[in-house]
């Protein structure tokens, strides 16, 4: 039996780097409804920023027409929060290689290869599903529970 979320949101915007700030603010505004700790909120913002940056830097690297990024968020009665970041870009051929710390295909630039590692360590769970030529979805799960005072 699946439990329905208490609340949810959807957003769509073009893959422009200036929207990285927009994306993490939207996610932060949504998660703020759960009264998270400063650290939990920062974790969500950082993970979303990484996921969206991947869409811009990697998924749509060869595209010039409209490149949409879709974000959804949902939270459940127990505080479980799920954020997805999806693109219709080039897809990832070898996911296990892509998520390896320090691995990057951007050898000429200054990408650190730590994007997926940060998403993994700042969330409770991260899953990547991808199809080459179709796109990639990153699913970030984090339980937001206010510490009892």
């Amino acid at each position: 039996m699946s439990i329905s979320p208490l609340n949810r949101f959807k957003a769509e915007f073009p893959a422009k780097s200036i929207n990285e700030g927009y994306a993490r603010m939207v996610a932060a505004a949504f998660v703020s409804q759960l009264d998270p700790t400063v650290a939990d909120l920062a974790d969500i913002k950082t993970a979303v920023s990484e996921a969206v940056t991947n869409c811009i830097v990697h998924a749509y690297r060869d595209k010039t027409d409209y490149c949409p990024i879709y974000i959804t968020g949902a939270y459940y009665p127990d505080g479980k929060t799920v954020i997805t970041v999806r693109d219709k870009g080039c897809g990832i051929e070898d996911i296990s290689k892509a998520v390896t710390p320090l691995y990057t295909t951007d050898t000429g630039g200054e990408r650190s290869g730590m994007g997926f590692t940060i998403m993994e360590s700042f969330c409770d769970k991260m899953t990547v599903s991808s199809r080459v030529g179709k796109g990639t979805t990153v699913r970030l799960v984090k339980k937001i529970v206010r510490p009892q005072s």
Partner: peptide, 13 residues
Amino acid sequence: SFCDSSGLGLVMG
């Protein structure tokens, strides 16, 4: 006030 892995790249660079 905010830094993701791009900050890491910036510092390393």
